[in-house]
Simulated assay, not measured.
Amino acid sequence: METCIIKSPLGYTKISGDDLGVASISVLNSEEKITDIIPIELEDCVHQLTEYFEGKRTQFDLCLNPEGTDFQKRVWEALQTIPHGKTRSYLELSQQLGDVKAIRAVANANGKNPLWIVVPCHRVIGSDGSLTGYAGGLYRKQWLLEHESPYKQQSLF
């Protein structure tokens, strides 16, 4: 398993993967040494994340290979159907998966998403529109949603 650390606007990001695909992407809460030479298996992921943060990419085209249960993988696949700049509630996501009673299980699987940004768990919000739990911190979730919003807030001052 190859690993690299890059710097993003939201902090240091750790990417792991191999020939079978990207296994994990996570934002770190500490300063880390940036990788000097990106492993070839991770170059495309680094490139696409860079384009995303520059506002040049709205969809990812990567081979993904996360570890998880079959149910978690179904939830993560459903997350990838949420369009850039849009949100879904946990209830809507559980309805999409065919079981409205699975809302807590869906939320739990969402929270265990190992592929930060690429599998857009940040696009899932509460039914009342609130920014509910986010493993990377709610300020990062807010930043990502604003970054993807087609309506940019202008500063008054």
Rank of each mutant, 00 (worst) to 15 (best):
D99Y: 13
L49E: 12
P66Y: 08
K14T: 14
V46E: 01
T3V: 13
E31K: 00
L42R: 06
H147Q: 10
I34V: 15
G136R: 02
Q153E: 13
A102T: 04
I103E: 13
I117V: 15
V124G: 08
E146Q: 12
L64Q: 11
L138N: 13
A102P: 15
E31I: 01
A107P: 03
T58I: 09
V100H: 01
T35M: 10
S130I: 10
L79F: 04
I5M: 00
T13S: 04
I82G: 08
S89C: 08
E77H: 12
F60N: 10
L42M: 12
L64G: 09
W143C: 02
S24L: 10
G21A: 09
H147E: 06
E77M: 13
Q142K: 08
L42S: 12
K141G: 01
M1C: 13
E43L: 04
V118T: 08
R123S: 02
G11W: 01
V118H: 10
L64R: 08
D61F: 06
G98A: 10
G21C: 12
F157D: 11
D18N: 15
V100A: 01
I125P: 04
L115I: 15
F53N: 13
G98C: 07
G21P: 06
K14M: 14
L10H: 03
G111S: 12
N29D: 13
S8K: 14
T87A: 06
L79M: 09
S94I: 03
C121H: 04
V119F: 07
P114Q: 11
G129R: 04
K141N: 01
E92L: 00
A102W: 06
G126E: 10
V22L: 15
L91V: 00
Q154R: 07
N108M: 01
S8R: 14
L28D: 11
Y52V: 02
F53K: 13
Q80P: 01
E41I: 03
C45K: 03
W76R: 14
V75N: 05
P114N: 07
L20P: 09
D36P: 03
S94C: 13
N65S: 15
C121V: 01
R123N: 01
P39N: 08
T58D: 08
L97Y: 05
